[in-house]
Design a protein around this nucleic acid. Structure first.
Length: 813
RNA sequence: GCCGGGGUGGCGGAACGGUAGACGCGGCGGCCUCAAAAGCCGCUGUCCUAACGGAUAUGCGGGUUCGAUUCCCGCCCCCGGUACCA
């Protein structure tokens, strides 16, 4: 039965058998009855027209290796795959090639599916999802309706980022450095009424729960920063008129340093702050309006450039600093953002660098209210001082240390009635409206009498109609708003003429709950079955790209938490474990279409086979860090699989050599430890080393030596493993049973150890001794070595360091 | 600027504070073969030496230690994220 390794033949055979035998798929009954279920999730792809590149394959393979390992350990592993096919990518591409997304997506999905089968992923294709399928987005709309009914969806007019090229609104997250994430065009500001999920209501819980989920620290940290909790106080500054009388209006500010209130020498409103008109001196209307218009135009573009040179204008209005009782001027400036805090600040130029720069620019007073070590109350400031110290120029609070001054001043403001402690979050509400075509229509009907009404669940889905002209225009209204026959409808509550919402929802909503759907795709009368969901969720392992560390992962946590509160699921956190994979670069450079160095898998599989590609990708570097795909490097794993094939098919019966057997058991131990930790590159190196030992010097190897390597290599190279497993005499799939080998502690121990001999920390020799040899004997043997004794002659020995079974170090001098 | 992650042979990358460079690629020499594919054997950080053997080496500069790629302090550079967040 000795024949050559033919990857194409082996892979075709096993992919066919997996399909015929249903190796990787579950019936509903099997899902219900599964023993020791393990939900192995990976981020589903957007099915582009180009097909998968090795970057995608890398991520999926890493997750698949994990799933296959768990399965070999005896878990029942559910590993679904789907397609995130709505959204601006597909829509823009369709526009570009002049086709309809409804025609394009199915062929893209078919191509992706072909490629995913070809790399040997353990996917259950009977539980796939496609977010553009009405049978799926029916339930996406259902999720929206649940949140709407719970008061978590709000319609509000808000300044939004507008991309003049994509002609659509962008979320703050999609604006990168003032430019559109997708096309790089400078983003403008517009005000449009849109639907928001009030994720900010969950900010504290989203933050708190991070402590109890097993995610990479990096990812958690990114979420912590994104949520951006900061503690401080809300302070109220009364607006006064020219005579110094309070007008009844109040400027609210959020500050993390209420203790510096005595140093607040002016106020700054964001240019778009609603109070600007109220405090404005009529004589200054022209410059203030001019400034506001200018700020609006460059909004979110130039405003994100941090610049020492601040701009702004005085409104001519004043308010009273409640700490000092003094009148201070009110300015507007674009360094104060409407979207954070209250859109207004008390400026403390002595202790905030931005305020300091502004005050210097416009010659506003700068007062020191914190004295650092060695400073007096009158020590002038060359820049804002933010270090430790005590309060000064702060009336009866002088001398209080900054470590407690925030608390003391907050209590005082509260007692006086002009402020209280407050926690503020950087996190914004999640805008889900998109003035585009390619998404699920937001299931809302507007009725003049009843207001916005959710589409009744029995009427879902609101099907996205096939619209031939879906190109957005600069009117800013959704393409669906041009389809009168579609949007005209009756109010579900009162029956009056009404109008459908014509915006579609954000793709992050599609992906916000897809993991709930996979195990329940057998049901078309419910989004997720309670029993199945309880059995399979939360997700045991989630692997995906770090580019989704904040958005997708935060949004899906929020959706889950909301569904939990509404009684639909029993858990708050969707993913027990999350690990981010690294990025693959090619020949030392980032893969990109423009560089022309995008590696596509098909020709590689053609030449070397899927098993070799999978093994090579996992061998490139640490999975969580990524690696450099170099064309030539694939020869290593290719040769390794050939040698493995040769070894298994030509091995003879016999008794294993004890040294070789020890190596095999050490390898089993190493893989058993490293695979759950995703340390694939070193695990593969260990397998290669083990095979090298088995074959060393062309020795005759026996079956018992090589056989354990078959299950060990199976997660990486499942096809060849199946074939060799069969040739070893097994009739069932290697993955249908707990076939991971066990290692024997008693066979791990070395009989001899190599001891390094150093003199003053420099290696001079190494000796081999029997394990368990006594220290004095080892030191004596070490001393006897020529290359050691030569360095000990004529010098005085001060110390001898012995590290058990490792080294001897003679310290001389 | 801030927050992460990194800087190790020609290259990708290994190294519980204990023999730096595992494993692999590439290179060099040889074997097998009609030939190719696959495979097999040996060598391969740098410098000095005919050799034995030395010296030197993990971005840079210090420190702790018998001993530092690993720990500490101060820099430089690269990658990713983020950005006037009050």
């Amino acid at each position: 039965m000795k024949d050559g390794y033919d990857p194409a033949a082996v892979e075709t055979k096993w992919q066919r058998l997996w399909e015929e035998r249903g190796t990787n798929r579950f019936t509903l009954e099997e899902l219900r009855a599964a023993k020791d279920p393990y939900y192995n999730l990976m981020m589903f792809p957007y099915p582009s027209a180009e097909g998968l590149h090795v970057g995608n394959i890398y991520a999926f393979t890493g997750a698949d290796v994990h799933g296959r390992y768990q399965r070999l350990r005896g878990r029942t592993v559910f590993e679904p795959m789907g397609f995130d096919a709505f959204g601006i990518h597909s829509e823009n591409f369709a526009l570009k090639v002049g086709k309809h997304p409804m025609d394009l997506i199915p062929s893209n999905v078919a191509n992706f599916t072909r490629q995913l089968r070809r790399i040997g992923g353990m996917f259950d294709w009977t539980h796939s999802v496609d977010t553009t399928d009405p049978a799926y987005y029916k339930w996406t709309q259902w999720v929206f309706v649940q949140l709407f009914k719970a008061g978590l969806a709000e319609r509000k007019e808000a300044p939004v980022n507008w991309c003049p090229s994509c002609m659509t609104v962008l979320s703050n997250e999609q604006v990168i450095g003032g430019e559109c994430e997708r096309c790089g065009t400078a983003v403008e500001q517009r005000r449009i009424a849109q639907w928001f999920f009030t994720i900010t209501k969950y900010a504290q819980r989203l933050l708190d729960n991070l402590a109890r989920i097993d995610w990479s620290e990096k990812t958690k940290k990114a979420q912590v920063n994104w949520i951006g909790r900061s503690e401080g106080a809300l302070l109220r500054f009364p607006v006064i008129d020219a005579k110094g009388t309070e007008t009844g209006r109040v400027i609210e500010v959020f500050t993390t340093r209420p203790d510096t209130a005595f140093g607040a020498t002016y106020m700054v409103l964001s240019p778009e702050h609603p109070l600007v008109d109220k405090v404005l001196d009529p004589g200054l209307i022209a410059p203030v309006y001019a400034y506001r218009d200018k700020a609006r135009q460059k909004d979110l573009v130039a405003r994100q450039k941090i610049d020492k040179t601040k701009t702004g204008v005085s409104t001519g209005g004043y308010c009273r600093n409640p700490a000092t009782g003094e009148a201070i001027p009110i300015w507007i400036a674009d360094y104060v953002l409407m979207g954070y805090g209250t859109g207004a600040i008390m400026a403390v130029p002595g202790h905030d660098q931005r305020d300091f720069d502004f005050a210097t620019q416009f010659e506003l007073p700068i007062v020191r209210v914190v004295a650092g070590p060695g400073d007096a109350a009158s020590t002038p400031l060359a820049e804002a001082y933010v270090g430790p110290g005590v309060l000064v120029n702060s009336g009866r609070f002088d001398g209080i240390d900054v470590s407690e001054s925030v608390r003391v001043l907050t209590e005082w403001a509260a007692a006086e009635g002009w402020g209280e402690g407050q926690v503020n979050f950087r996190l914004h509400d999640w805008c889900i409206s998109r003035q585009r075509y390619w998404g699920p229509p937001i299931p809302i009907i507007y009725c003049d009498a009843c207001g916005p009404v959710a589409v009744p669940e029995s009427d879902l889905p609101v099907v996205l109609p096939r619209v031939e002209n879906f190109k957005p225009d600069d009117s800013g209204v959704s393409p669906l708003a041009r389809e009168e026959s579609w949007y005209r409808t009756k109010c579900p509550e009162c029956g009056a003429d009404a109008r459908r919402e014509t915006d579609v929802s954000d793709t992050f909503l599609d992906s916000g709950w897809y993991f709930l759907r996979y195990p329940s795709t057998d049901f078309d009368d419910r989004p997720f079955d309670p029993t199945i969901t309880k059995k399979w969720l939360p997700v045991d392992s989630y692997i995906g790209g770090h580019e989704h560390a904040v958005l997708h992962l935060l949004y899906s946590r929020f959706i889950t938490m909301a569904l939990h509160d509404l009684g639909h699921v029993e858990f708050e956190e969707p993913y027990d474990v999350f690990r981010a994979h690294g990025l693959i670069i090619a020949e030392g450079a980032k893969m990109s279409k423009s560089k022309g160095n995008v590696i596509v898998p098909d020709p590689v599989i053609e030449e070397f086979g899927a098993d070799t590609l999978r093994t090579y990708l996992m061998f490139l570097g640490p999975f969580e860090e990524g690696g450099d795909y170099r064309q030539e490097g694939i020869q290593g794993p290719y040769g390794f699989l050939h040698r493995l094939w040769d070894s298994v098919t030509s091995a003879v019966e016999g008794t294993p050599d004890p040294d070789v057997e020890r190596k095999v058991h050490q390898t089993i131990r190493q893989l058993t430890e490293q695979l759950p930790e995703l340390q694939y590159n070193t695990a593969i190196a260990a397998l290669m080393e083990c095979l090298n030992t088995i074959r060393a010097g062309g020795r005759a190897f026996v079956r018992a030596e090589v056989a354990p390597l078959v299950p060990l290599v199976a997660p990486f190279a499942p096809h060849i493993a199946e074939e060799l497993w069969e040739r070893l005499g097994h009739s069932a799939s290697i993955f249908d049973g707990p076939n991971w080998p066990a290692y024997d502690e008693s066979k791990l121990a070395e009989t001899r150890v190599t001891i390094a001999i150093q003199v003053n920390g420099k290696l001079r020799a190494s000796i081999s001794v029997a394990k368990g040899a006594a220290e004095p004997d080892i030191v004596a043997a070490a001393r006897a070595e020529n290359s050691v004794s030569r360095h000990l002659d004529g010098v005085s020995e001060r110390r001898v360091i012995y590290v058990k079974e490792r080294l001897v170090n003679f310290v001389v001098g």
